[in-house]
């Protein structure tokens, strides 16, 4: 099953490589990984999406928890949660199919954020599933490049991911 694990990490040099190194050393998959500072500049928030059975996910969480830089972690997928991913797609400009593209973009609630004579860039924010669907729907267009951010998310319950103060 797919799990999304959110991690609060000390904003120290080398901390990210410890997380990435743990996954490769122990043979765990990383499907996506996002990282950015939080409102507390000493902490970064990482979001890792990975696939594994319960035993593997249990090990991943325990091994992450052992890292000295990991301040808190949570598998948000076992709770009610929201997840978002941003995708940018660059397409070859084609005035003939533009109306079709406009309809598609509207249907997905996306946005054309850059248009010129040679190319269009469209943006969408949504669940990874929705991003997958958009990319599928774009098969008839000439895609030049795709940039996905990887998923980030949080629970929509009271269970927030915070650092317990000692």
């Amino acid at each position: 099953m797919r799990h999304i694990i959110s991690v609060l990490l000390e904003n120290e040099s080398g901390a990210l490589s410890r997380v990435a190194g743990l996954f490769s050393a122990r043979g765990y998959n990383i499907d996506t990984l996002t990282v950015a500072p939080t409102n507390d500049p000493t902490l970064s928030r990482l979001t890792i999406s990975t696939v594994g059975d319960d035993r593997k996910i249990d090990q991943i969480e325990k091994q992450l928890g052992k890292l000295v830089d990991v301040a808190a972690l949570q598998d948000i997928t076992i709770n009610r949660h929201l997840e978002r991913e941003v995708v940018l797609v660059k397409l070859l400009a084609n005035q003939q199919s533009k109306p079709k593209l406009d309809r598609l973009v509207a249907a997905f609630n996306g946005k054309l954020i850059d248009i010129n004579d040679t190319q269009f860039i469209l943006e969408l924010s949504g669940s990874s599933e929705k991003v997958d669907e958009l990319l599928k729907a774009l098969v008839d267009f000439e895609i030049i490049e795709v940039a996905r951010s990887g998923v980030t998310g949080m629970t929509s319950t009271e269970r927030a991911l915070t650092v317990e103060q000692p």
């Binding site: 990490l9 000390e10 928890g65 052992k66 000295v68 830089d69 990991v70 301040a71 808190a72 650092v163 103060q165 000692p166």
Partner: peptide, 8 residues
Amino acid sequence: ITMRAYPP
């Protein structure tokens, strides 16, 4: 020293 992320 305090190391808030080091698990007790």
